[in-house]
Design a protein around this nucleic acid. Structure first.
Lengths: 171, 171
DNA sequence: TTGAATGCAAAGGATTTGCAGAGGC
DNA sequence: GCCTCTGCAAATCCTTTGCATTCAA
């Protein structure tokens, strides 16, 4: 995308007929599951920004134990799994932990991953679709999804080779 | 554990000036490290076939505890890490575990991953190189490696599903 | 009311680490 | 002999599970 820019290009959310919350409610409804306070808190938090995050980071954004709005760790894990199942989030693994990102209402993209500061930069390249299609056909493979991560050193880290840059929390 | 079975190799090894063992010896030498029996056993085993494997699968191929040639689990993990560092193996994550494959003497490739039987199928597409190059340039990113995994259902799994369809619940 | 969901504690599974003894070089 | 390496046990890290209680519908 836009060459000549320093900042990572931000992808634009897709226009949606239903909000993530609405879609999740449908999901719950259709399975006889309940729309609890915890699930409401989590989905609100998760969709309040489109950063990548892991379970730990999500926990840190929640109110502390004892305060209103607190959600326990097991419940966080259970909810993340439901969000993925409902098509709201996508999950992938990085350095041995699970990382989540918005799926619903967000365009397909892939990532550059800085092995120094652990930041993730999104990019889009439509040629990938073609490759995927051709390879799947060649192997009579029914493709459902793909994940491409290009690892290296991001621009800020290349420039400040000596300066210690605080790694972006979390991946 | 044990996932990621493999198909017979389809890609041809590259002609090498030095064997993996030789290269590893250089690596050890240059760092004042020792070429122990354990490391020799492991490298021989690892390069005796082209399959993808995880630490557990490698352990299972080793002689049992008490028998000659046994290597303990911590040593296996330490060695795998060294092999990666020495450029002999490449490591990636699948379903929460670390999976290894030959790097030295093996051409760049990517994978189709069957979510049903967990097999990994290798493929090559040179257009990926171009995409990687362009994206890296656009973002002033110094790319070092990439990993593309296309997930779906492999041909054998697609066929077996059609043949023996699960009957509708009777009762 | 009633079964699903939560929080707690504890378990699990993969991988790593501290350390005393073994063994390359 | 020096110093790295190994194996053992135990620790860590992330994630999941069993269960009694709480709560949405």
């Amino acid at each position: 995308m836009a060459a000549g820019t320093d900042k990572p290009v931000q992808l634009e959310p897709i226009e949606m007929a239903r909000t993530a919350e609405q879609r999740f409610e449908d999901y719950l409804q259709s399975r006889g599951m309940r729309n609890t306070e915890q699930r409401k808190n989590l989905i609100k938090l998760v969709f309040s920004s489109h950063e990548h995050f892991d379970a730990d980071q999500l926990m840190e954004k929640l109110p502390a134990k004892g305060d209103a709005g607190y959600v326990s760790r097991p419940t966080v894990y259970r909810a993340l799994s439901e969000f993925v199942d409902a098509g709201l989030l996508r999950k992938f693994e990085l350095d041995g932990r699970s990382v989540y990102e918005h799926d619903y209402g967000y365009p397909q993209h892939d990532h550059l991953y800085c092995s120094k500061c652990h930041s993730l930069i999104e990019f889009q390249d439509d040629r990938l679709k073609e490759i995927r299609k051709k390879v799947a056909e060649d192997h009579h493979f029914q493709d459902r999804s793909h994940r491409l991560i290009i690892t290296g050193i991001c621009q800020p880290c290349r420039q400040s080779r000596r300066r210690k840059r605080r790694p972006v929390d979390l991946i």
